[in-house]
């Protein structure tokens, strides 16, 4: 037996990791520095407290909004819209990407239209969506669908197109029929790109949501921010921004945890910074 049993049991991405507290020290330092700069700017009078309230004021406002249930109600409405829009985008984009992946003819036929639509920012479609769908939920969900669709669609399509042909050959030598080549090789190989598309779309969805809620809305985090702006409540505006950012981070963290638990091989391949 060959004595090359060099068991590289530590993946490269883990070998590069800095252990324990030191790993988070850098991020913590940046966060503390930003908070300190904010506090100094506000307390020192560099920026008016009206434009930039003190961190403790924002914290108190946040607590107040949580206590009286206002924040929870807005968050629930926004999350509901995100789930509906994101879910619809996934349901549309993934099958379409697979169809285009297996049918170059369909891809050629639809590519110009999709490429055209991809260039249009979702918020630019808002007036049209208001005219078509009214000012209710459908219009807001429509904006989220438009924002999420292309990252998911392009991620899946790119993943299928970039499947290593040498892996397909392995399947051919094993005598796999075409549908099994697709199911057992092409789709798993496309998974890293699909997951990256899903993660990017999640961020895009949150951005579009706020845009959609800024117009003709009576609830949601975007509405809460606009309403606060009209009442000159900068503290509420900042609370809204923090909540949106935190929810986006939590959603992304959830996806990453899910990947780490269910498909450890995907971890390194689905880091957006490595994409």
């Amino acid at each position: 037996m060959v004595a090359d049993a060099h068991w590289r049991d530590i993946p490269s991405y883990e070998r590069m990791a800095i252990p324990g507290l030191a790993r988070h020290a850098g991020a913590a330092c940046v966060l503390i520095a930003l908070l300190a700069a904010w506090w100094l700017a506000s307390a020192g009078g560099l920026v008016s407290a009206f434009l930039l309230p003190l961190p403790e004021t924002v914290l108190a406002t946040g607590w107040e909004l949580i206590s009286d249930g206002t924040l929870g109600a807005h968050v629930a409405v926004s999350i509901g819209r995100i789930l509906a829009g994101y879910g619809l985008a996934v349901a549309l984009a993934l099958p379409l990407a697979f169809l285009f992946g297996v049918s170059p003819a369909a891809r050629r036929a639809f590519e110009p239209v999709l490429e055209f639509l991809r260039q249009v920012p979702p918020l630019a479609m808002m007036p049209l969506l208001i005219l078509w769908l009214g000012i209710g939920e459908a219009q807001k969900i429509g904006i989220i669908v438009l924002a999420c669709f292309f990252p998911i669609f392009l991620g899946a399509l790119g993943g299928i197109a970039q499947c290593d042909p040498k892996l397909v050959e392995v399947g051919r030598v094993c005598g796999l029929p075409q549908r099994d080549l697709l199911r057992r090789i092409v789709l798993p190989a496309a998974l890293p790109s699909i997951v990256i598309g899903l993660r990017i779309a999640l961020g895009q969805g949150w951005r579009a949501l706020v845009g959609a809620e800024l117009v003709a809305s009576a609830a949601g985090l975007g509405y809460m921010i606009v309403d606060a702006e009209q009442l000159a409540r900068t503290d509420i505006v900042i609370v809204g921004i923090f909540v949106i950012g935190t929810l986006g981070l939590l959603a992304d963290f959830g996806v990453r945890r899910l990947i780490a638990r269910t498909a450890p091989w995907l971890r390194q391949r689905t880091e957006i910074t490595h994409a």
Binding site: G101, V102, S103, P104, R107, I160, A161, C163, P165, K166, V168, E169, R172, Q178, L182, V186
Partner: peptide, 12 residues
């Protein structure tokens, strides 16, 4: 290859 848009044999 009909669904890959690329010839799986081309590289080889």
């Amino acid at each position: 290859d009909p669904f890959l848009h690329r010839d799986p044999f081309l590289q080889q």
